[in-house]
């Protein structure tokens, strides 16, 4: 739900402020790739209505966000591709594909794609965090959006702890990816929490 909330928060921000200054479209592109790699089973496997519905929502909303930021005025007029410049193609996609192949539980396309999507998701926030570091001042809604993006994976970790003790569920790849992903947020969370605590605007060093 936190992940869904982060997407809805971003949609609301774009619609309300008609600006995507401070928002990384490259991060959304990474998430679109994550979802396409991971949700291929939409075509051949049914787990539950909830599972299918959320997959469709995540894929469609992420592509809609990219469309808004890249091609739909007035939002796209505020998008600066030179500022949002993290070269994720070689820095993130390459390693995720290699790691996905090496660490896949079995060498089948769905499993390799699933594993690569876990590694890619764990670092997909980097373009967004790097863009914020360049801008330093973080607008309120953006701060909330990034905070929910960091929080959702932390709640997966809590669920994984529960599932490990309740049903012996083991998911090494997901666990490692989740720890890396949450770890990348820790310093942002610190500055976010401080700005909330002291009621000041969020400014990154």
């Amino acid at each position: 739900m936190l992940h869904l909330m982060s997407i809805l928060l971003l949609l609301w921000k774009l619609k309300k402020s008609k600006s995507c200054v401070g928002i990384s479209c490259r991060m959304q592109e990474c998430y679109a790739i994550v979802f396409c790699l991971r949700y291929l089973d939409l075509f051949y496997q049914f787990i539950s209505v909830y599972n299918t519905a959320m997959k469709v929502v995540f894929i469609s909303s992420t592509f809609y966000l990219i469309f808004l930021m890249r091609f739909q005025p007035p939002v796209s007029a505020t998008y600066d591709r030179t500022a949002d410049s993290f070269p994720y193609e070689q820095y993130l996609l390459g390693p995720a594909a290699v790691l996905g192949f090496i660490s896949a539980e079995e060498w089948s396309i769905p499993e390799i794609f699933w594993t690569a999507s876990i590694w890619l998701e764990s670092v997909s926030i980097l373009p967004q965090l790097i863009l914020l570091q360049q801008l330093r001042e973080v607008e309120n809604l953006t701060a909330e959006f990034v905070a929910t993006m960091g929080a959702y994976r932390f709640f997966y970790i809590l669920n994984w702890i529960y599932r490990y003790f309740a049903e012996g569920y083991v998911n090494w790849i997901g666990w490692l990816g989740g720890i890396v992903q949450t770890g990348l947020y820790v310093d942002f969370f610190y500055y976010y929490a401080m700005s909330k605590w002291y009621g000041q605007k969020l400014v990154l060093p």
């Binding site: 992940h3 991971r38 089973d41 787990i47 599972n51 959320m54 997959k55 995540f58 539980e105 079995e106 089948s108 769905p110 499993e111 699933w114 997966y156 997901g174």
Partner: peptide, 10 residues
């Protein structure tokens, strides 16, 4: 886990 890894999470 049975056969191919069953991924029931989003």
């Amino acid at each position: 886990d049975e056969g191919g890894a069953e991924h029931d999470e989003l």
